[in-house]
Simulated scan of single mutants.
Amino acid sequence: MIERPLDLDAVQAFIRIAELGSFTRAAEAMRTTQAAVSLKLKRLEDRLGFRLVERTPRHVQLSARGATFLDHARELLEVHDRALALFAGTRQRLTIGISDHVAGPELPALIARMNAQDPQLLIEIRIGSSGDLLQSFDRRELDTVIVRLHVGRSDGEILTEEKFGWFAARGWQHRAGEPLPLATLAEPCGVRAMAGQFLDAAGVPWTEIFVGGGVAAVAAAVMAGLGVAALAPRMLPFGAVDVGPSLGLPELPRLPVLLHTRVKDGPPRDALAALSAAFRTAVRG
């Protein structure tokens, strides 16, 4: 029988560790230190009387009891948040712009993480080009943007760097003597500009064969066999292959992903911290 109530901060730390698979990411999401997260978990384990997490040099894994406790821990925080919401005033709002080259297939999971951080927070997300989103941010139409590094901007916090490659459908063949058929996003697009610059510098003739209004459209054109696109691997459906080495195309650099925000504190900042930590985990795998 547990005589004293559980520490909700410690319960939240355990949930973050379980969801993000890392003490470091959990600390980022909670805006604290790894040592503080480790201490919270130890106190929770001491209170419960059993180990929740099995630690290894490379990753963390829930114990059998930890996996069982996870659902109960989530329910506990949900009940707590609902109780607080009964006496809360107007919902706080967080408007986020995410570059189309950044918002990958893991976006639903990232939104779920933010909602789990604060179910009462009203979240608004817009998808667009990095340039357009930065302009909206500067006009104070968005609280936060997560974008690719944009020409002329040196501000922002680097969340991670992501490798790009030249992708085509499996079995696609480039016709000898013809310009490289390129599928791109519509202007303005920093990745589109980068791809053209690298091909020009390498002396590779190219032509636009498809212009899409979003990365999903460009990926569809690639898988339909229209040509090649410069994209991050996680943005492509299963079956796409990097044809850069076989075609002798120039190696593309790792591109930074930056966070620009004017959110300083409160539930929006906590949700943003959870989003950032989850995003780093998703991109780095």
Rank of each mutant, 00 (worst) to 15 (best):
A282P: 02
A10G: 11
A88N: 08
R234A: 06
A13P: 05
F137D: 09
I111P: 00
P57S: 09
L62I: 11
V215D: 00
V241R: 13
G214M: 01
R82K: 13
T68L: 11
Q34I: 10
R262I: 13
T261F: 09
G156I: 03
A67Y: 13
L226Y: 08
W206M: 00
H150N: 08
I15N: 02
H101G: 04
A176M: 01
T95E: 09
V11A: 08
Q120T: 12
C189W: 04
A230Q: 11
Q135V: 09
L44E: 06
F238G: 11
E106I: 10
L62D: 00
W166C: 03
E75S: 13
L199D: 08
P188S: 12
R31E: 15
V241P: 01
T90F: 00
W172Q: 07
A26D: 05
E28S: 09
A193T: 15
R126L: 14
L44R: 04
R93D: 01
L44W: 06
Q92I: 08
G104L: 05
L77C: 09
G190W: 12
G89N: 11
S136C: 04
L231E: 11
P57F: 04
I127G: 08
R269W: 12
G203I: 09
V102Q: 07
S276C: 15
V211H: 01
E141K: 10
I17C: 14
D118Y: 03
G203L: 08
L8S: 10
A271R: 02
P105S: 13
R91C: 07
D200R: 11
F69Y: 15
H80G: 03
V204S: 02
E251A: 15
G165H: 00
G203Y: 05
I209D: 02
P119H: 03
L6C: 10
M235F: 05
R25Q: 06
F210T: 08
